[in-house]
């Protein structure tokens, strides 16, 4: 699956996007946990208040995801 990162999360991890393979029963929360296990900067970036989207729609961590999905993690929004 494609995973995208924005704002502080993009800056802290130094990563705009990455590709990863997920198990058949994967959820967004599982993806977040797997990314946090990559190291201390990933843990720092994704342990705070993080919103997530699947296929460009906001969702919560229980959402089931597959390798065909585009997932994104980002901080609370501050536009306007």
């Amino acid at each position: 699956m494609k995973v995208k990162f924005f704002a502080q999360i993009r800056e802290i991890t130094g990563t705009e996007s990455l590709e990863m393979v997920v198990p058949a029963d994967a959820t967004i929360e599982g993806v977040r946990q797997a990314l946090m296990a990559k190291g201390s900067t990933w843990h720092e970036a994704l342990s705070a208040n993080v919103l997530c989207a699947c296929n460009q729609t906001l969702c919560d961590g229980t959402r089931a995801v597959s390798d065909q999905d585009e997932v994104a993690f980002f901080p609370p929004v501050t536009g306007g």
Partner: peptide, 20 residues
Amino acid sequence: LKQSVPIWKKEWAGDTANWV
């Protein structure tokens, strides 16, 4: 918009930028 649209704001002061 300020609650649900994915846009993020950073403020610049001199050479320093901070996320809002």
